[in-house]
């Protein structure tokens, strides 16, 4: 028998921990790029690995080997810390989401609240990253990211609260358990909440139509303009992990998590459902033009929040629980 401590360590380090999640992050970046290219009638990554499968990894390695420049005027400490935080926050949040089986690596009552807190921290870190770069474009990008957070955070929280009311728990694992136990998914019970959640995730991931914080034609690379080399590699990996996080949250909260009525291993179900979620996010991203930041706020406050509240009212009236 292998001691339990070793198993736990392996779970955290290898599967379904760091190694697996990071590999998954690269894989989903590849799916996203490849599918976007397909939708736009292009090839996308092609030559690194089979069908360019290793391209995101190759990009990562290339960035690691590049020169790392810190601007003279930058706030050095914050400027260096931000990329680390941007990678570690989404990774940490992923430990709260069930991947292999019905319970996550870390699971406690109220971990959903902790996860919302992590989401906010990510946005705040982005703002700090932009601010500490001391560059016109970075500052504007950072401020836009903060603005955007003001727009999407409330409807996203409201949409996430929907399943918690339905399952009467604040733990993601237990929400998944409830869906598995009652053999239903929250997407059927709360379709409006699902739509709002996906829209808010697009904003969180800075995907078109909500990519104003890094709008290339307006402010170069937005808040990450001054980053290069290792730091940029970490930021990009962090973005990929965020994509995994978004996909697995959609899966856990609305698609029933890694459970299925058929006798399929949980990890396969998880991969299938998250891939589906990534596909959905990618298609949506190919479909629109970019909103201006003020239009984004207007959309969030005028439409998303009232509709999210409507969903809550419906839940309170007994529909969708």
């Amino acid at each position: 028998m292998v001691p339990e401590g070793v198993v736990a360590l392996l779970e955290i380090l290898l599967f379904p921990g760091f190694l697996f999640l990071i590999a998954l992050a690269f894989f989903y970046e590849w799916i996203d790029r490849k599918l976007l290219a397909k939708l736009q009638n292009r090839y996308g990554p092609l030559y690194t690995g089979p069908s360019g499968l290793l391209q995101p990894f190759a990009d990562f390695i290339k960035l690691l080997s590049k020169e790392d420049i810190t601007p003279k005027a930058a706030d050095k400490l914050m400027f260096s810390c931000a990329p680390l935080l941007l990678l570690s926050f989404p990774l940490l949040a992923l430990f709260l989401v069930p991947v292999n089986g019905l319970t996550a690596l870390i699971s406690f009552e109220g971990d959903l609240v902790f996860l919302m807190f992590l989401f906010t921290l990510i946005a705040v870190t982005i703002f700090i990253a932009g601010w500490s770069s001391v560059n016109r474009f970075s500052t504007v990008g950072g401020v836009r990211a903060a603005f955007q957070m003001l727009g999407y955070e409330i409807p996203m929280t409201l949409a996430m609260v929907g399943p918690t009311i339905g399952a009467r728990t604040l733990s993601i694992s237990q929400i998944v358990g409830w869906q598995s136990h009652n053999a239903t998914w929250f997407i059927w019970l709360q379709p409006i909440g699902f739509v709002i959640f996906v829209i808010c995730l697009l904003a969180e991931l800075e995907f078109i139509p909500f990519d104003a914080p890094e709008a290339e034609t307006e402010i170069v690379a937005g808040w990450s303009t001054e980053y290069s080399g290792r730091k940029l590699a970490l930021i990009r990996l962090g973005k990929d992990v965020e994509l995994v996080l978004a996909a697995s949250l959609i899966t856990s909260l609305f698609l029933g998590g890694p459970s299925s009525p058929l006798p399929i291993p949980a990890i396969v179900v998880f991969l299938l459902k998250t891939t589906l979620a990534v596909v959905l996010l990618t298609i949506l991203r190919a479909l629109f033009a970019r909103f201006r930041i003020d239009q984004m706020i207007v959309v969030a406050w005028k439409y998303l929040i009232p509709i999210a509240i409507l969903q809550m009212v419906l839940i309170q009236l007994g529909l969708g629980r």
């Binding site: 290219a37 397909k38 939708l39 736009q40 009638n41 292009r42 090839y43 092609l46 298609i283 190919a286 479909l287």
Partner: peptide, 18 residues
Amino acid sequence: MVRELLKHLFRSPATSKY
């Protein structure tokens, strides 16, 4: 636009592997 997008899922790319 959605229909056009989904149609492209089944079309071979317009670019060539030069």
